[in-house]
Amino acid sequence: MSMTSTSNNAAHAHDGAGSEFLAFTLGSEEYGIDILKVQEIRGYEAVTRIANAPEFIKGVINLRGIIIPVVDMRIKFNLGTPVYDQFTVVIILNISGRIMGMVVDSVSDVTTLSPDQVKPAPEMGTAFNSDYLIGLGTIDERMLILVDIDKLMSSGEMGLIEKIAA
């Protein structure tokens, strides 16, 4: 899938030398989030279910004495039936001081994108509402859908996480 964009003013959100993104996969797409929001990456482990929580909130885990909610992005965005195997990982995020986990299919690498490698996200059929996208990062033939994880995790629908974690 190749997409070309004629706009060069895309990276106004990130000026300067470039930003580092953690690349991860959900289904057939590869996404990136700001590495500064990532606290650690863990293998998937059993979670404690919470009664009456939406299905995409898998439950909570005890992370060194802190109870943190875990969201399964594959369920949240209807990306097929999630499979939990040795590649499944939980990305532990620190969003404005709130710790939470995000289940993804796999994590590939950390990539530095310069501002000219970030293009505006076109209106296209990604799982994520374009409000939550920073843009598309392009590295050679590879394309990362860059997610504004702060915005996504603080959105109204994710507000339920705060109630659960409380």
Rank of each mutant, 00 (worst) to 15 (best):
M3A: 02
T4I: 14
T4R: 13
S5G: 14
T6D: 12
T6Y: 08
S7K: 10
N8V: 02
N9H: 10
N9V: 04
A10S: 15
A10V: 06
H12S: 11
H12D: 07
A13C: 01
G18L: 01
G18K: 01
S19D: 00
S19R: 12
E20M: 07
E20P: 02
F21W: 09
L22Q: 01
F24I: 05
T25H: 12
L26N: 10
E30S: 14
E30H: 14
Y31N: 06
Y31S: 03
I33D: 11
D34Y: 03
I35A: 15
L36F: 13
Q39I: 04
E40P: 13
I41H: 05
I41N: 05
R42P: 03
G43E: 03
V47C: 13
T48R: 12
A51E: 14
E55F: 12
F56D: 08
F56N: 07
I57T: 06
I61M: 12
N62L: 05
N62V: 02
L63H: 14
R64W: 04
R64M: 06
G65Y: 04
G65R: 12
P69Q: 08
P69G: 10
V71S: 15
D72N: 11
D72Y: 00
I75K: 15
K76Y: 03
K76I: 02
N78Y: 08
L79C: 06
T81R: 08
T81G: 10
P82A: 05
P82E: 08
P82C: 06
P82F: 13
F87N: 15
V89A: 15
V90M: 15
I92R: 08
L93Q: 10
N94D: 14
N94Y: 08
S96W: 07
R98C: 04
R98Y: 11
I99L: 15
I99Q: 09
V107A: 13
S108E: 14
S108K: 14
D109P: 00
T111E: 11
L113A: 07
L113N: 01
L113T: 00
L113Y: 06
S114C: 00
S114G: 00
V118L: 02
V118S: 03
K119A: 11
P122T: 09
P122W: 09
E123W: 02
E123A: 14
M124C: 08
M124Y: 12
M124Q: 12
G125M: 14
G125F: 15
T126D: 04
T126E: 02
A127T: 05
Y132F: 15
Y132D: 14
Y132W: 09
L133D: 03
L133I: 03
I134E: 03
L136D: 04
L136M: 09
G137Q: 12
T138C: 08
I139R: 10
E141R: 01
M143G: 06
L144T: 02
D148H: 06
I149Y: 13
D150S: 03
D150C: 04
K151G: 04
K151D: 02
S154D: 07
S154L: 06
S155L: 07
E157F: 00
G159W: 07
L160N: 07
E162I: 05
E162F: 11
I164P: 08
I164Y: 14
A166E: 12
A166F: 01
